[in-house]
Amino acid sequence: MTADLTEVPSGRGVEPRPPVRREPPEEHPKLPLRDRLTRLDVKFTPYLFIAPFFVLFAVIGLFPLLYTGYVSLFDWELGGDEHPFVGLGNYTALLADDQFWNALFNTVSIFVLSSVPQMITAVLLAALLNTALRARTAWRMGVLLPYVASLVALAIIFSNLFGKQYGLINTFLEGVGLSPVDWQGNWFASHVAIATMVNWRWTGYNALIVLAAMQAIPREVHEAALVDGAGAVRRFVSITLPLLRPTIIFVVITSTIGGLQIFTEPKLFDPAGGSGGGFSHQYQTVVLYLYQAGFQDFDLGYASAMAWILFLVVLVIAAANFFLTRRIASTGESE
């Protein structure tokens, strides 16, 4: 990819904020450092810093990854004794599988319906939370509450909302003389309902991430603009937003990945709690299908192939979103 993600910027272009250093509790005598030690430090310490992630990944993350990769090359029945080698057979079968393409379409559709409104709302919400509110902690943590609510409660509440026959929304629609919506049966309506659930659960979460980045913007920047007479909206658009770029990129990439792996919400939305994604798979997502293939049909090889294809799809879409975001975030600036 490009520099935004991977290169170390050499400065921020503004004067550094005075150090918010916390004095260590006791006084340390200065240690005379020899050059060699410094050079070793510079050369090897970075690897030491990143080692925990990679060591643990090698011990625990890599094996499952290789295992699914290996299994995907076999006709591997879960718990079976013989696993004939089929090469790329699972992959070619998958690409010819209508249900897979249907699931991919549903995934992307729900993703688009949820991510766009979610990003915009999250940034605006973060801006509101970044004001001099009374009882700030309470407000900020309040927006995280959806994530803490129990899934049992959510399943009931959302089906009370989106129920076809007794749901609140349909009761309301009929009350004002409109025709009720088939939230389960109609594919688009079901995607909207699931996207609503996703947005409800994750907007606050993303807003907090953006908020954290907003707070890292040095006060001097704001001060300067304030002195220059810039209004609140102007300062938000021309100062806050551009400085949020690394964070926006982070949010876009992580929610692209999360959105394309969506699983919990469509599973909760199924009235029987299954992984079929509706009676005609009208809202079955790729991960639901993967789950169904692996744990219901016991076709572990096929499910593993699906996991790998999804992985590639996610990478491609995440990369595309990354470039798109970078472009949007850098418009209106002098390059």
Partner: peptide, 15 residues
């Protein structure tokens, strides 16, 4: 037309 054990099915018993 109520899926067994769904929330709407429960409501169906009540109604």
């Amino acid at each position: 037309k109520l899926v067994a054990f769904s929330n709407e099915w429960n409501t169906g018993f009540k109604n």
